[in-house]
Design a protein around this nucleic acid. Sequence first.
DNA 1: CCTCTCTACTTGTCTGAGGAGTCGTGCTAC
DNA 2: GTAGCACGACTCCTCAGACAAGTAGAGAGG
Lengths: 222, 222
Amino acid sequence: MEQVKRAPLADQAAELLLERIRAGEWELGQKLPGETTLAPQLGVGRSTVREAIRQLAGRGVLASRQGAGVYVTALDVPEEWDAVLRRADLVSVIEARIAIEAEAAALAAGRRTPSDLRAIRRALDDRAANRVDIEDHVDADTRFHRSIVAAAHNPILTELFDGFTPRMRQAMVEMLRLRGEFGDDADHGAHERLAERIAERDGDGAARESRSHLGAMKAALA
Amino acid sequence: MEQVKRAPLADQAAELLLERIRAGEWELGQKLPGETTLAPQLGVGRSTVREAIRQLAGRGVLASRQGAGVYVTALDVPEEWDAVLRRADLVSVIEARIAIEAEAAALAAGRRTPSDLRAIRRALDDRAANRVDIEDHVDADTRFHRSIVAAAHNPILTELFDGFTPRMRQAMVEMLRLRGEFGDDADHGAHERLAERIAERDGDGAARESRSHLGAMKAALA
DNA sequence: CCTCTCTACTTGTCTGAGGAGTCGTGCTAC
DNA sequence: GTAGCACGACTCCTCAGACAAGTAGAGAGG
């Protein structure tokens, strides 16, 4: 009979708040009433209101700033980023990757921790060890490049790189399969130099290495 | 540079949990340790752990069932793109913008059509004309920068730039309002030089101008 | 072997307290 | 008069403790 009760109060409160936000009760960027006001208004305790707010914060609808209040950061959730990538030209994807990765390499040179450097070198060795199977080699290569982007300690750049990965993987496997040859010493040397520039904290040099390496790939794929 | 402390404990706890989940510490569908176990393990109170769990529940990673426990419902979160932007540090956003825009400027120098160039110069004039109202000036500035990215004829870079726009706009308006001063001649000169490099088809020069201009902004906001 | 019950454990909710950050107000100094 | 500063009200953040509500497994009884 009482199956309405099944949902926890915090979930119900979150749903209720979301409805009121969508209804336009508070403008985008506007401040919500305080927790102490909202709690009796919704008929629940303060901690329950807090959990509801947290839940919506996790979805990106709300953001709370200590001392200031809780603010509306979005009215609804958005569009399909993957769709853009899928329909885009491969050359465009690589150009975007060059932009991301060269900048990340320069930042990584300045911010890398000893731990980052260890991860980069481990990925480099792993990359050298995987020269037989094409897919394994591509995956190892991706892990190496990702370790560099991660060393830049910039979540946006990391997220972008991860977004490009699936699309790139497919293209690279095809390219290497066509060329029949991969993972030669010259290629590996370029990667070693890139790692070395980052180890030396040479930002400009790292960006240059990254740019020339990816530029060659772009030329090969175009 | 020690701004690490600014994130609330609940956010830090959520991030920590997400890392451990991604690392595979708990399988998909598996039960996490109880809140009373997790709390001392993370060094926070039980309510804080609950808020962290709620946050991840809002993102679809966890689901809790009263009496049973908390379960992993997803390993890979297709992280909402603008949710990342909203959460991210402003410095990170600018760094990503530098990466996008410098590369776009270089490409634009090589690919601009006469029509692109006309649009860029029109946006530049418009930018110079809007020096009174802060929001109008920011919008005009954004249109100028966008005209350059558009001239690169790369849909990915354009899409990324557009994604950054809302977050940047808010921050720039705040900054200019605080600084009290904006749109001076030195600033306008930098923009004129950028347009000129693109007109001359000087890719490296355009990238350099773009980078130095945005680098100054990063320094001002940091 | 099956079923029922009971118990230990887990999440849900509330309350009260104090800490920390933000923002506007009003005072002070120039 | 105006700029700078101190203060106080307000807000979110965190913790601790208590009890309610629900679940699942162990054990007793059939």
